[in-house]
Amino acid sequence: MSSLYSQARPISYPEGFTLMSHSDTYKDSVYFHYSPSFKYSVGLEVAKDDYFDDEYSFFRFTYLLNRKNTQNSQSNLYFQSGLDPENFDRHFYGLHGDWETRRWFVGFGYKESFNDFEDFSEKYLQFGIAPYLGKYGDLHTWLMFKTKKNSLGDGWSTYPVIKFFKGDFLIELGYNNKTRTDAHLMYRF
């Protein structure tokens, strides 16, 4: 299973590398990508799937479909996809969008995944507020709520998420008794 995680900026700045790890109820994964430009990124994700008890990898491609900048906000719409190089039947595609100011964040995602066992879809919505506005280089903190649904699971799951962000590092943690822990670490360079 590939799980849908809210990637803060799924494409880096031009010529930037990003290393991220993600862990939730369904899988643990490590994803490394390179962005030749701010419009797209290519990378490899290696995953240990707890739901289907499987291990696999994805070549991933993410493309910025649209971006709107204003003085105080930025909104983005991304296309994301992945293909298992050893099994083309295993692949996924989806959309991911966000709108962000320095104070507020709204994000959403939808993804369709296909494999040899059972196809499934995932969707999420995420809202966040920054309790204070840090300067460039400060520690930034986001308090968020996320609601998500996996068609393999039993309905929507809503839970709080906290995100810390400083320099090139980001950590995002969420928890509820349905989904256990959502942990997302990211290092950009």
Partner: peptide
């Protein structure tokens, strides 16, 4: 320089590096 869409450190870091 006045810049639109610079809402987080990642945007700023990219500009700085460029």
């Amino acid at each position: 320089i006045n810049v639109q869409g610079m809402v987080c450190d990642f945007c700023a870091r990219g500009i700085e590096k460029a």
